[in-house]
Amino acid sequence: MLAYLVKRLFQAIAVMLAISLIGFAIQDNLGDPLRELVGQSVSEETRQQLRDELGLNDSFFTQYLRFLGNAVQGDLGTSYFFKEPAVDVILKKLPATLELVFGATLIIVGLSVPLGVYTAIKPNHVLAKVIMGASIVGISIPVFLTAILMIYVFSVEYQWLPSYGRGDVVHVFGYWDTNFASLDGWSHILLPSIALASIMLPLFVRLIRAEMMEVLQSEYVKYAKAKGIHPFRIYFVHALKNTLLPVITVGGVQIGTMVAYTILTETVFQWPGMGFMFLEAVNRVDTPLIVAYLIVVGFIFVVTNTIVDLIYGLVNPTVNLARMGA
């Protein structure tokens, strides 16, 4: 177990080094940060002078080595726009994004299990067909369209829910303000969470349904039925347990992907999280922030995958982590 974690740590470092190198390599193609920093009528001479000050005229390797030197000391650069260390900016935005992902996860977990199980048990029922049909629609509509549609219906037409932002958040500690402690907070996080969940929910409903249908065909379920065990117990205790392994595999990867999908959701809802921040940073050519974001997201991916592997061992004792790491 320990050997496995140490190995993972080295992998994580390698991944982040690779990401930083790629991030650095593409930054020249993102545009000229100076254009966003100065007004339109500033002379080329003044621009060059500022470029020198920022060290943008140095060679690629000089810049990258300087970056690595600072990164080792925990400094991933200073955002041009926020004028603060990029890591601080990201950490400040991180709780908003994590809360959004958490809200979406709640919806996905809460709905996908009953819906998936139901459509597997009664595949021919009208309701099951409606659910499956809806899931196709959900998968095919892009997040931003779902989001705009919901804003239009629930905010503009019916005026039930607010259209943007986080509303009144309650301070917890450090950079963490929560949406889950006030009614206003809940009402603000509801639409973005549903929008974000709309992509993953159908996927999980379908996954659970497929796995469940397969399990329901197996001998032990038939035997349990013959034995006269209550159907509820068969479905939710015996059958569901055995469908969970692939669900966790996909789930782990998808939570990482969901962090990426937050870019779209946050942009539409003006959610002050790090996805929105990233898109803005790209528009503003805030290169230090872009590189730092890529590294942090890479880190999140590595961490979630490690946790998924650990959960594997808990759910299925035959998985041997020590061997997996080797």
Binding site: I151, S155, V156, Y164, F269, Q270, E280
Partner: peptide, 16 residues
């Protein structure tokens, strides 16, 4: 700041 045009318009129309 509300960057997205449709969201900004929706915020006005919904009274936010």
């Amino acid at each position: 700041p509300i960057k997205e045009d449709p969201t900004r318009v929706a915020a006005l129309l919904s009274g936010d």
